[in-house]
Nucleic acid binder design. Structure first.
Lengths: 219, 219
DNA sequence: TAACGTTTCAAACAGCCGTTTATCAGCAGG
DNA sequence: CCTGCTGATAAACGGCTGTTTGAAACGTTA
């Protein structure tokens, strides 16, 4: 019953190629030839290229949502109704994001894929992710809401997306940036190192003073 | 001598379609038919699709770099050797970014394009931008360096890219986010409004406390 | 052994891609 | 008048795309 060797070979090859070149720029022929599988295997096992793309994401996001829900369950038990501090929430999310792909040494790929999901056209992907994994995000934002009661709802919404942008943009473009950083500062940067650097910036961003109201005339 | 009507029609149509769907997903036939010009016109006037993509960027980035250099010239004269405060630098950049496309009501397109330049494969584009416009960025980062002498060089490098990610990610995915925000918070968000919200977050992120050193054993 | 459902495989499908070609219109200067 | 030159146009080019087909190979169960 275990997944066919062919299926995993396709998934393993596809996720790397997608991450490197994007979806439209990666043809099924490239995938199947590099995976040493017959061209028709993709349509046989997945049905279409769209479905393959979604399957690639599901293989990361299914275990992620499961673990993240479990983590949040544990936190809610621990804090027993009291608001969970923002740092704890962010830390938990970061840890879960790191855990899942760590087992396959593919954190970089996972991050690239997340970036692509946001920026590539692929309307079907956005819909699929929203529909299948939207609930975790909703639950998380609700907990963040309780952790930051002083923030207006709209402001918190935008700041969460600001921070999402920071993280996804950085980690998904990591290879290119790393090259520059290494050349200019002679410093090798690991993903964990980057997350260490990201933490204070994200926290400070979330806790930044409120913006001055828009060109308002004082009462 | 003025640019042919055909050339501008192609550029106007192409930039919108590229911004909406990405480069690989936008065919020359789609562009030329929507622009009501002959298919061969693109290759005749630009030479290739790659060159068209670069021309679309050049039409934004050429005036941008020119104005931004002028702005920095003025600032350096004004501060006469003293370091220019970080807020002033960020503010100037934001103002220049807003000015250029404002004349064609295409800020949204410009931002999407910047995002695509980072995230889409298109290796030739990254090279082209680096080669033609890298010097402005270098000059800007050097001024930021003088404005934030307490930051280690590597830390400043990463934080600048964190903030770049925040801005590009947000503004380039603006349409999708705006829909959610409007539905959930009933609030219409303009680009200027978003920049007002971005400012304190970016400043706070740049001024965040330094991260604790990596798992170092105390001496 | 025979029949079965599942998976692999080579080949072909129609369709779209970027680019090139050859033809033709319009207009300049000799 | 006609010779060049710039641009516009329709048509075709070879190549690559995702998908489908029908036959072959496989392992399992009767």
């Amino acid at each position: 019953m275990a997944q066919t060797d062919t299926v995993t070979r396709i998934l393993n090859t596809a996720e790397v190629l997608f991450a490197e070149r994007g979806f439209a720029e990666t043809s099924l022929r490239t995938i199947t030839s590099k995976a040493k599988v017959n061209l028709a295997a993709v349509n046989y096992h997945f049905g279409s290229k769209k479905a393959l793309i979604q399957a690639v994401f599901a293989r990361y996001l299914d275990p992620f949502t499961e673990r993240f829900h479990a983590t949040l369950d544990a936190l809610e038990r621990e804090y027993d109704g009291r608001p969970i501090p923002l740092e704890v929430l962010l830390e938990s999310m970061a840890r879960t994001v790191l855990e899942v792909p760590a087992e396959r040494n593919s954190l970089k790929v996972f991050m690239r894929l997340l970036g692509l999901a946001y920026t590539q056209a692929q309307g079907h992907l956005r819909g699929y992710i929203q529909q299948h994994y939207g609930s975790v995000f909703t639950r998380f934002t609700e907990l963040v809401r309780r952790a930051t009661p002083e923030l207006p709802d709209a402001e918190r919404f935008w700041r969460l997306h600001f921070m999402l942008g920071t993280v996804i943009f950085t980690l998904s473009g990591l290879d290119a940036l790393r090259d520059i950083a290494e050349k200019d500062y002679g410093e090798h940067v690991s993903v964990r190192d980057l997350i260490r650097r990201l933490r204070p910036v994200v926290v400070a961003g979330m806790n930044a003073p409120l913006p001055e109201p828009p060109q308002a005339v004082a009462v």
